[in-house]
């Protein structure tokens, strides 16, 4: 007996439905498995929309690149519309606009959810800081000699003295960090401080490769110094609880905090590249 094959139209529709259901209901289990914890982590609505659109694009590309495949796909639709069972025809003709109408209505009706917000990852650094470098990481020869005298380092090489300076400043920064930053950003700079759960948008995890490792040190200095009040409107300053530390600490202390943040997170600041 000849095995009955499902036609290409239905294969396409079923494939779409399966992949969509996987996005919607399968991925939360995968995300939970990766992240751990008790809660399922959904694929956000914007992500679901984006990937579903791509799925439709992929399917359209596949069914339409060849005349044969395209005919296999739309042939059953044309045959159904022309010669199909009349009762089924009218059911489809009535249900299809209703489903689309219901979908549009559901999408556009007022809902009791907070709006989707676009957030800027790294708000623009003020131009005045464009050429500023951490003076503690790049000390002048005079500063190095002064430090040598203060710490009685004798005939130690200049590079070693510089490293000793950086180590000292970083340690001082660590003390400031643990006193002021750890409640939110955590002892290990992983964004898991004891107060972190109290925020709607959790404090930044500095150990994340996409966080402070991708910006120059001056950027961290600016964020610590100016906090959320200086953020431009598109960066949603109301989504940040970062205080402006310029009222409590000097620039030098803030540079030390920035150095400590990188050190604790085992990250390195982004280095401006040589201009070619």
């Amino acid at each position: 007996m000849q095995k009955k094959r499902i036609n290409f139209f239905w294969v396409t529709i079923i494939s779409f439905v399966i992949v969509y259901l996987f996005f919607k209901f399968g991925t939360p289990f995968i995300f939970k498995g990766i992240k751990g914890g008790d809660n399922l982590i959904p694929l956000p609505g914007t992500g679901l929309l984006m990937y579903t659109m791509l799925l439709i694009l992929a399917i359209f590309t596949y069914i339409s690149f060849s005349a044969k495949k395209f005919e296999e796909f739309y042939g059953p639709i044309v045959r159904f519309l022309r010669d199909g069972n009349r009762a089924a025809y009218w059911i489809v003709m009535i249900i299809t606009p209703l489903v689309i109408g219901f979908g549009v209505f559901s999408w556009t009706k007022p809902k009791s959810v907070s709006p989707t917000g676009i957030r800027i990852q790294h708000p623009g650094l003020p131009g005045s800081l464009g050429t500023v470098e951490n003076p503690l990481r790049h000390p002048s020869p005079e500063d190095i000699e002064k430090f040598r005298g203060e710490e009685n380092l004798g005939s130690m090489g200049e590079e070693e003295v510089k490293l000793a300076m950086i180590e000292k400043y970083t340690n001082e920064g660590r003390a400031l960090y643990q006193a002021n930053c750890h409640p939110c950003h955590g002892c290990a700079a992983d964004g898991n401080g004891p107060q972190a759960d109290g925020f709607r948008l959790r404090p930044v995890n500095f150990t994340d490769p996409g966080a402070i490792a991708t910006v120059v040190e001056t950027y961290v200095f600016w964020r610590v110094k100016e906090g959320n009040p200086s953020l431009p409107p598109e960066s949603t300053p109301w989504d940040s609880a970062m205080p402006a530390w310029k009222y409590d600490y000097s620039d030098e202390q803030i540079w030390k905090i920035a150095m400590a943040a990188y050190d604790i997170a085992h990250a390195m600041p982004r280095m401006p590249e040589e201009v070619h």
Binding site: L40, P42, V113, T116, G191, R200, D208
Partner: peptide
């Protein structure tokens, strides 16, 4: 882009 509810469920930035 996330809603407030999605942010809460994700639990991190």
């Amino acid at each position: 882009p996330l809603t407030g509810e999605e942010r809460s469920l994700i639990g991190e930035q």
